[in-house]
Amino acid sequence: MKAKVYVTLKPSVLDPQGKAIKHSVELLGFSGISDIRQGKYFEIAIEGPLNVDQAREEAVRMAHDVLSNPIIEDFRVEIEE
């Protein structure tokens, strides 16, 4: 089983890296882009007897306590069987 965790800056937090990336993308000629936000992506391989719900619970705890900083970031968890 695999847990996929997406960590993104909260909408209220400025993302200077995303801004710089958007600028570069526009220099390449891409148009119609209103915003780019940069985030982090984690793949967690899970072994053992956990069922999907338990795996999700564990991944959410990891995401909340370690992978993200809840002051500035949000996260989303997906489980792939």
Binding site: L9, L14, P16
Partner: peptide, 11 residues
């Protein structure tokens, strides 16, 4: 301490 320290605005 409260708050967080993120990337400098000028990168």
């Amino acid at each position: 301490l409260p708050g967080a320290l993120i990337r400098n605005r000028g990168l």
